[in-house]
Amino acid sequence: MIGLGTYAFFWQHSDLVDEPLSLVGAFEATKALGVDLFQICDYAPLEAMDDHELADADAAARDLGLTIELGTKGIEPPRLARFLDLAGLFGATLVRSMLYSPETRPSLTEAEEWLRAALPAYEASGIDLALETYEQVATTDLVALIERIGSPRLGVCLDPANVVARLERPRDCVEQTAPHVKNVHVKDFAFARQPGWVGFTYGGAAMGEGLHDYPHLLETVRPRERGVNEVVEHWLSWQGDAETTIRTEREWTRTTIEYLRSHS
């Protein structure tokens, strides 16, 4: 299933615009684009919501017919327990996370201990935990950790754009993680020369215009055949003013949805 995530609304949610988009507003915008999945990922206001606000958000998603996934950073057992509770509230069947949080950087041994402590509750609830590929942890280490633990509920959130920052090739990341992928983050990426031709900037691109070999990902991972959701997000830099930035963000979202629908 194609979905949108909060990173597809990064600037629309931000304080740099006159009227930041609410979570429910993002739900409504998602449905208006004919998309039925939304991933609330690294969305700080979620953790500050009280029970009444959470119930309202859940009711809004259900009224719109949206399937919800959740995302956080970190694998401390209390954090994972909290997001398991939130998943139960929203009827989510997947929580995406990363090994490190802003406050914690466990060793691989500590990470294994924490995950082994948290996973029985996920297994009992039938909820998947998907750890994202990113530059702070080698893909080989992430895959080895998942394989050592061997839980059917533990897998990968595949985002091959992230690993370039540790000089890994996106195609290699896709191939190494393919058997374990439970979620895909969809965005294109490219290098651009800096002014004066002194180095490069690595950032986002409109889907289909960058370096991401998405057909290779589809062929290797087979997300549609396996029921793995593809969640749209962007690496869009500020475009100089709010109006241009928001317009471009919305255009990139439409472009990515059209791209995914055309590559079936």
Rank of each mutant, 00 (worst) to 15 (best):
L142M: 10
L218E: 08
E112N: 01
L218N: 04
E233W: 02
R226E: 01
C157A: 11
A117K: 11
V221K: 00
A124Y: 04
P152V: 12
Y134K: 05
D213Y: 09
E112A: 02
T133H: 06
D172Q: 11
W197C: 09
E168K: 09
L145Q: 04
E147Y: 08
E175P: 03
P152F: 12
F189G: 04
V184M: 12
A144Q: 07
K187V: 12
E103S: 12
L115Y: 03
G126L: 12
E110R: 07
E225I: 08
C157K: 00
E123A: 14
R224N: 00
F191K: 12
F189M: 11
L142K: 07
T109I: 10
V228R: 05
T104L: 09
M207G: 09
R105V: 07
V232S: 05
L154C: 07
Y122S: 08
A144I: 05
L158H: 00
E219W: 10
F189Q: 11
V186G: 12
T139D: 09
R169F: 15
E233V: 08
D188H: 10
T104D: 13
A242P: 10
D141V: 02
G227E: 01
V232H: 04
K187M: 10
A205W: 02
F191V: 07
Y134V: 00
R153E: 06
T177Q: 03
V198L: 14
V184E: 12
P160R: 07
R226M: 04
K187D: 08
E132F: 01
V143I: 14
V181I: 11
E147R: 14
H234A: 12
T104A: 11
R116T: 06
I146R: 03
E103K: 13
W235D: 15
P120L: 02
T140G: 10
I127G: 06
G196H: 12
C157R: 00
G203I: 07
R222W: 01
W114S: 04
W235R: 12
G208N: 07
S101D: 04
V137Q: 01
E112L: 00
A165W: 13
S101R: 05
Y134S: 04
V163M: 11
A178W: 09
G196N: 13
E230K: 00
A205R: 13
L218S: 05
A121P: 01
N162R: 05
F191S: 10
